[in-house]
Design a protein around this nucleic acid. Structure first.
Length: 647
RNA sequence: GCUGGCGUAGCUCAAUCGGUAGAGCAGCGGUUUUGUAAACCGCAGGUCGGAGGUUCAAUUCCUCUCGCCAGCUCCA
């Protein structure tokens, strides 16, 4: 009998008969297959546990704890859900059903949306399929056979998918009981491997993600290897709901969005505005310290400006409708760039002047389709922490490098230290020559590499005028948010005829960098709100200290304490209401005020204050100076000093 | 924009199988003078998202419309 060399993660290599199953091979090498192993990677390729090995193989068992393992587990789970749907509703047609972050979904073509009762029924059936512990087997077809097979089963969407596959390559399908689904695999060996399964919700989705295609019914679910893990996941979803910035924004009275005002337009209430002001002040301070110059620009401008910039051609569907003014048309600004360009153009610039860095907290208005608006995260009017750098080609690399440092230190100050960087390249709809694009992309790539940043490529995701680097941050709940962006632009300098005089006395064209650190103040504020769950650190808290007198006779001393704290620059509120101390504390806790000061006879006598933190911790009695120091120490270094963030 | 769900007091939520609505909290007025997460009593508060229709009668049924939520698509 022919034999092959098989090893387990590179160790215990043994000669085993060719064609042995991965499972049997592991049994030979390891004695037994641990029950939590449900698939393997053979020479880096994921295969079924029961797949046969035909060549020398290095095996790596796959379990739920690896990303690949999770995907297989969830993929099998979605097959179970699909089987349940087919059993409950035989006329539902299968389309696609992948594993996603945190679970899986499956899209069905069905004559009506699934109701909550349907979901219960489907979930019960899925649990039954798991209980039945059906074995899952792989089968390969030729493309033609597969088409015939799925035609005969009344699955036109599957047929359409297969028709798009390359000719001549085998098509695989997986069977569990009476259920057969087109699938690349691998899968769990049997349905019973799924230990905890939950159907989450249903929603509409377009076939192949195109709104011109039929609407399908999408079911979302998740699965885990234990009931505890599933519960932990559900608890996490609850926590995300609790931290929803829309809920916190209302509870903490930070902002509102009202029907009468218009969807996607934010009203900043005093406390929210206070936090925003702190963010903005810090932002301005840092920009001035880092040799940016701050400018202001109007909210509307002649439409012609946007024709020159190319926005009318490339961005029209996201712009508000222009308004007629006298004999010309004006446009609510969707971008700040043209204004900064116009400031640049007011002088003849020398190569010695460059780089020129114009920064602005510029409010822009974009028409977003009604269905996409979402609290502060996606709005129709928002303020970009925008800047445009005009530089010489030889300065490009260094400028991008500096911006990347600025990004990481700025975001770091707000408590975000996990970054993911993405390099986006030329999209289909683009301006400029391929040569310019290559040059700009190379500059970004070099800056990323020189700075030692890990990054991922995002092909075709650049802006129409140039490639970009996007930075995503991770919040306290592990979710990713895009904030910063750095974009190179050769196009606008050309469109607007920007120049500088070089050392050679001749005219040259500067390169522009568009960049934002926080992205949009509204969105960033929403992210911060969810990140901290509303409990802002003291340096950002709208109210840092509540002074709570025990009874009316302590009001005088409380007022004195309040005045002293205010004099020291603290944001302090005095609660003089005729209420018990327990209620005042409860309400200060609910408002997530970092420090509470209780004053009664003892404190007035000693000229001290009793300090309590919002987490319930009692810090005991201290002097006013002590509490002021406590608050100051809580500030990040950069905020304390108001000095350079980098260099 | 599309599919589905939902709009009742400032907030969180009830109720009415068609006969114009109720609670807690918040607010206001009292009483109480309080020691680390809710004192007590009382008062007031609503064109039941908006417009039309059906009906003797609509918050309830129908149509349209606006907004919100989930998802799709898009995105800072």
């Amino acid at each position: 009998m022919e034999s092959i060399q098989v090893s387990l993660q590179g160790k215990n290599s043994q000669a085993l008969p060719k064609g042995i199953s991965a499972k049997a091979a592991i049994e030979q090498l390891n004695g037994a297959v641990p029950p939590e192993v449900f698939a393997v990677k053979a020479n880096g390729v994921e295969i079924d546990l029961l797949a046969s090995l035909e060549t020398d193989s290095t095996l790596q068992p796959l379990m739920f704890d690896s990303p690949e393992g999770k995907e297989i587990y969830r993929h099998s789970s979605t097959h179970i859900m699909a089987q349940a749907v087919k059993e409950c509703f035989p006329t539902a047609q299968l389309t696609i059903g992948p594993a996603i972050e945190g679970g899986f979904f499956y899209d069905f073509a069905f004559e009506r949306p699934f109701t909550p009762e349907d979901l219960e029924k489907i979930e019960a059936r899925a649990l039954d399929i798991i209980k039945r512990n059906l074995s899952v087997s792989r089968r390969e077809f030729s493309k033609e056979e597969a088409i015939e097979f799925f035609k005969s089963r009344g699955e036109p969407y599957k047929v359409e998918l297969i028709q798009g596959f390359p000719d001549g390559e085998p098509v695989s399908a997986y069977t569990q009981g009476d259920f057969v689904d087109l699938c690349r695999g691998p899968h769990l060996p049997a349905t019973g491997y799924v230990k905890a399964f939950k159907l989450l919700n249903s929603a509409g989705a377009y076939w192949r993600g195109d709104e011109r295609n039929p609407m399908l019914q999408r079911l979302y679910g998740t699965s885990f290897p234990s009931a505890e893990a599933l519960q932990a996941h559900l608890d996490n979803l609850e926590e995300i709901k609790r931290r929803d910035h829309r809920k916190l924004g209302k509870d903490l009275d930070l902002f509102s969005i009202q029907d009468e005002t218009g969807p996607g337009l934010i009203l900043w209430h005093p406390k929210g505005a206070q936090i925003r002001l702190l963010i903005e002040n810090f932002w301005r301070e840092q920009h001035l310290a880092n040799q940016y110059e701050l400018v202001y620009s109007p909210h509307v401008a002649r439409l012609d400006l946007w024709k020159t910039s190319g926005h009318v051609d490339f961005y029209k569907e996201n712009m508000f409708t222009p308004m007629p003014v006298e004999s010309s048309e004006y446009q609510l600004k969707p971008m700040n760039c043209p204004f900064h360009i116009m400031v640049y153009k007011t002088h003849l610039r020398s190569y010695r002047d460059l780089p020129i860095r114009y920064g602005e907290l510029g409010t822009v208005y974009r028409y977003e389709r009604s269905g996409v608006l979402h609290g502060l995260m996606r709005v129709r009017g928002f303020t970009q922490d925008d800047a445009h750098l005009f530089c010489r080609p030889d300065q490009l690399g260094e400028e991008v490098q500096k911006v990347l440092k600025f990004i990481t230190s700025m975001l770091g100050t707000f408590g975000f230290t996990e970054f993911k960087m993405f390099l986006s390249t030329r999209p289909e709809k683009a301006v400029g020559t391929i040569d310019q694009w290559d040059q700009a992309t190379l500059a970004l790539e070099t800056a990323l590499k020189d700075g030692g940043y890990a990054y991922q490529e995002d092909p075709g995701e650049g802006v129409f005028y140039g490639p970009k680097i996007d930075v995503k941050i991770q919040d306290a709940l592990g979710r990713s948010w895009q904030c910063s962006t750095v974009q190179i632009d050769f196009n606008n300098p050309e469109r607007f005829g920007l120049t500088y005089v070089g050392e050679d006395g001749k005219t040259h064209q500067p390169i522009m960098i568009h960049r934002a650190l926080l992205g949009s103040i509204e969105r960033f504020f929403g992210i911060l709100l969810e990140h901290f769950g509303g409990a802002f650190p003291a340096w950002l808290a709208p109210v840092q200290v509540m002074v709570l007198p025990i009874s009316e006779k302590h009001q005088g001393y409380a007022q004195e304490v309040e005045k002293n704290l205010r004099r020291e620059g603290c944001r302090v509120v005095l609660d003089l209401r005729n209420e018990k101390i327990g209620l005042k504390i409860r309400e200060a806790e609910k408002a997530k005020v970092p420090f509470m000061i209780v004053v009664g006879d003892r404190e007035a006598e000693a000229q001290m204050v009793a300090v309590r933190q919002r987490n319930g911790k009692n810090l005991g009695t201290m002097s006013i100076i002590d509490i002021v120091t406590l608050i100051r120490e809580d500030m990040p270094e950069a905020v304390k000093k108001g000095s350079l963030l980098f260099e």
